[in-house]
Design a protein around this nucleic acid. Structure first.
Lengths: 185, 185
DNA sequence: CTAATATGATACATAGTTGTCTCATATTCT
DNA sequence: AGAATATGAGACAACTATGTATCATATTAG
């Protein structure tokens, strides 16, 4: 959003645009600016007023999603709790944000900030896995990278199940926790 | 491939096109016919000679990938073996076909044949899960749809790990099997 | 070798998307 | 109420991807 010097954006306009964009991109990657404008109930010119590029919009959206995920995870980060409890808390708050998660895996990450935010997220999960190992909640001979990948994937699977109305968010989080702890032991 | 009545296609030309298309689509969904032609080392006109549409190309490609996956899975389908062994055999042959698997999840499935091929695949996995339950290899209170989703996801995770040179195909298959059996128990 | 034909290169028309600009209207702020 | 300004609608140009047609060349088959 590099054009905000020329025009302020109204909060509900911004939200409508970003919400619509997330929704559309999650359904189909070949989304046009016109599609987004229509879905947001906003004039097409308004998009170009506030976003220099389509890339600019995507990057803004990526940053937003990444921040929401990071914030949700950080909120569960209570150092004194055992790792299993922290994992469960993380799953419970991350799974409902599956659309944000999905967006981040669909679009390529450009920009230094975004990249470092992603690495922070990765480091956080890696640290959690290692703590789970020291607490003997999971096996030490499982490669950490495998465990981290499993955590990411299970969030995605859980969100999909919730999305398909096969599970409630809590059921999904419980199943995800159980699948991870057993699966990596 | 509805235009083959007018022009025969040379086998190596077809293979070059399909290989390039799979490779490019797996890296980025916004692939143009020009990109595919260049990557295949083939004239752009040749693509339009043999594929009525871009959709036609994608559909042909989807069908090809689906067939390869089905064939690989069917080859492991030895009814007399225990379900655990069949699962392991399936993982070992499916994981190296991760690019085919990826293509199928990226592109929307159109066409009746493709849809029924997909359902056949889904039914196969569902049956395997239920057999694993009767053999008490996994817990019966785990929703079958969750287990099926886990199988699909773990193939993807395993392939990614192999792709990143973090694991060998055999290591990945073993880890995948272990993760599934423990995770769903 | 020779005929048939699949391919490559190029030019071309078409359609869709992007991005800019302008002006009237609606919204917000004082 | 009145001023400032964000928005919507539309016209516009530039660019890109798609798809067609043609002809010379390379490949294959008989």
């Amino acid at each position: 959003m590099s054009k905000e010097s020329r025009h302020a954006i109204r909060p509900r306009t911004l939200e409508a645009i970003l919400d619509a964009a997330i929704r559309l991109f999650n359904a189909d990657s070949g989304v046009t600016m016109t599609d987004i404008a229509k879905a947001a109930g906003v004039g097409r010119a308004t998009l170009h007023r506030h976003f220099q590029d389509k890339d600019d919009l995507i990057q803004t959206l990526s940053a937003r999603c990444m921040e929401e995920m990071n914030a949700a995870v950080r909120a569960t980060d209570i150092p004194d709790e055992p790792a299993v409890k922290r994992l469960h808390a993380m799953l419970k708050s991350a799974i409902p944000l599956g659309d944000r998660f999905a967006f981040l895996s669909f679009e390529r990450m450009e920009g230094e900030d975004l990249q470092s935010d992603y690495e922070e997220q990765l480091d956080w999960t890696t640290a959690l896995i290692e703590q789970l190992k020291t607490e003997q909640a999971i096996a030490t001979d499982v490669p950490t990278s495998w465990a981290v990948a499993q955590v990411d994937q299970v969030i995605w699977t859980a969100w999909t199940a919730v999305w398909n109305s096969e599970l409630t968010p809590d059921e999904a989080a419980n199943l995800a926790l159980r699948t991870l702890l057993n699966g990596l032991s």
